[in-house]
């Protein structure tokens, strides 16, 4: 049994855009997730965190690098070879509206993984899994025969989670599961995911752009910028001692839910816009927006190194 449920090394994912242009969605990203732990991945939209998740779950074919799921290299497996391994790894999607098939009842949606992996033979047998799962995510049996479009966003997302958890996977990739939800519902979903983790000891790759929630659910947090991992360390550490200027900017940009503190807040944040991933800036990709940029930043790309024990950062300031 491996200590790490997922090991990602030098993962690269490029997409062709026409003849010549290439979108550098993910460039040389490495991290690992231990069993029963949560890795949070944060970054702005367009930073490649979703592409990263989709390469890992092999909806995309990675351009380079290796992905080890429980010690097995799945980087170049065919979909057929992958099929049995998919039981170990499931995904929760961002949009609770488009991630559920509108023509299927909730019962059929949750039973689909069971049928796909021949855990049950028919829908009647699936009920013994579907009903407990529905109740586990806070819904009732009466909901089983309803269609997804009748539910509210939070309820749908819980159905999506039930679908991902019903096979009892060892790793669940949560691709911004709470971004589209209301604040009062976000906490429900996060609690649900955490409780289930404590019960079954599964690992999460939790992707979000909301730093405050990521801190709450994660053991380790990685910050991505324009396809690259710029900082990786323990969840507490990243909030108490952020090293990369981008992480610092991200943190200071979070709106503070306290008017007194908000008025005191220093002017911080990150100026400017995200450059295009088709033509990423040379050197450190963040140098165009970085307040501390030095001449070297625009020439040489910094590599990930340990600045403190268990705290890696890719920045020339810490050379």
């Amino acid at each position: 049994m491996n200590e790490n449920i997922l090991e990602v090394e030098h993962l690269t994912q490029h997409f062709r855009l026409g003849r010549k242009e290439v979108v550098h969605a993910v460039d040389d990203v490495s991290f690992c997730i231990r069993r029963g732990q949560t890795l949070g991945l944060v970054g702005e939209s367009g930073c490649g965190k979703s592409s990263c998740a989709r390469s890992i779950i092999r909806v995309y074919d990675p351009t380079g690098g290796t992905i080890l799921l429980d010690g097995t290299d799945i980087t170049h497996m065919s979909q057929k070879q992958l099929q049995p391994l998919r039981r170990k790894m499931q995904m929760v999607f961002q949009d609770p509206y488009s991630s559920l098939n509108a023509r299927m009842t909730v019962r059929d949606i949750i039973a689909e993984p069971l049928l796909a992996h021949h855990v049950v033979k028919n829908r009647e047998q699936a009920n013994s899994f579907v009903y407990p799962m529905l109740e586990r995510v806070g819904l009732t049996r009466e909901h089983a025969d309803r269609y997804a479009h009748e539910f509210s966003g939070g309820q749908r997302q819980r159905v999506g989670i039930a679908r991902a958890l019903v096979l009892q996977p060892e790793l669940v990739i949560c691709d911004e599961p709470i971004s589209a939800l209301d604040v009062s519902i976000q906490a429900q979903v996060v609690n649900l995911l955490r409780d289930y983790q404590q019960e079954k000891g599964l690992a999460y790759l939790f992707i979000a752009h909301d730093l405050s929630m990521v801190r709450y659910v994660s053991d380790v947090v990685g910050v991505m910028y324009l396809g690259q991992l710029v900082e990786l360390c323990g969840a507490e550490e990243i909030y108490s001692h952020p090293l990369h200027p981008y992480t610092q900017g991200l943190l200071s940009a979070i709106p503070v839910a306290n008017p007194a503190l908000a008025r005191q807040k220093k002017s911080g944040g990150v100026a400017g816009d995200l450059p295009s991933p088709v033509t990423p800036p040379a050197g450190c990709r963040f140098h165009t927006r970085c307040p501390f940029a030095k001449p070297i930043c625009s020439q040489e790309a910094p590599c990930m190194k340990e600045a403190a024990p268990g705290h890696s950062v890719a920045c020339h300031l810490y050379d």
């Binding site: 955490r194 409780d195 801190r215 839910a257």
Partner: peptide
């Protein structure tokens, strides 16, 4: 339900 950045994370949100 908004987690504060200094909130204790052992408990439930």
């Amino acid at each position: 339900s908004i987690p504060a950045l200094n909130q204790d994370k052992t408990g439930r949100l």
